[in-house]
Design a protein around this nucleic acid. Sequence first.
DNA 1: AATCATCACAACCGCAACCCT
DNA 2: CAGGGTTGCGGTTGTGATGAT
Length: 305
Amino acid sequence: MGRTPCCDKKGLKKGPWTPEEDETLVSYIKKNGYGSWRSLPKLAGLLRCGKSCRLRWTNYLRPDIKRGPFTLEEEKLVIQLHGILGNRWAAIASQLPGRTDNEIKNLWNTHLKKRLLCMGLDPQTHEPFTSCGPTIKAPASPATRHMAQWESARLEAEARLSRESSLFNRPTPGKTDSDYFLRMWNSEVGESFRKFNQEDKTTCQSPASASQASSSTKCCSFSAVTADISPNLAGYSTTASNQNEDMECKSCKSYNAGSDSSSSIELEDSSDSTLQLLLDFPINNDMSFLEENVDSFTTYSAMQL
DNA sequence: AATCATCACAACCGCAACCCT
DNA sequence: CAGGGTTGCGGTTGTGATGAT
């Protein structure tokens, strides 16, 4: 139907790679780089299609691949980023050095998604389910939406930049979206955004004490992760645990087995999980001004209620 | 010990965006 | 500008490993 598969040529091998094939591919790329995936298999003497070679290299053979289980920090980051970016695995992977999009996708589908479901959270929206499906939540504050859009664009640009810089044997491409983003950031639009934040900071009061409410949680210790990401999620997990403290899904159990440091955690109360998510996000470049505005945004958010 | 179910992850497929001519 | 080729991405599948019965 329609498109013909790329590997339907007779003689091309499919399925798992052998150590010999790996060796051939690695030594060829080390020596010659990967100019064209299409022609690479022929030049390297592999009976594989270019697509298969590229996948094998990027997901398994690349020297900077970090193997082994994901750490708690990495899982936190994946959930944070998924909340912002959705199923854009490549963009998420660009923020986790040594991890591939495929690996993260697998992690999400086999572990994290189930854990969210187990906690009664919609894996797509990260919002609690109600008996009639996902909760319809009041829209985030304008500031939050604005920040989320910029953060999403920034991550995308960063992903592209890191991809481009990693292509050690490929010609430098022309103008890209990242160029565009950087131009935008330095343009009037970016300026107005920065100004907006600055004004917000000066006009808003100090953070309300509303964020002081805290409680401990006992249910799925997965909430150790979600608590850091979103107070809303953590708060919900507490509620869920009250409803059925003995109920713990397999996925959560396996998670608990790997982490026992989270039996009790501090939770904050906030109406805007997206805002908190962004504020929790590790920022170490010129977006650092966002951190400076934690107080004002928290207040702004509270004022929207 | 055998069988079945579930899990984990590597690999494949097809679409869409991008690039080049 | 159009069209064909190439690459990147996300969804899905296949299969070996592991656990449960």
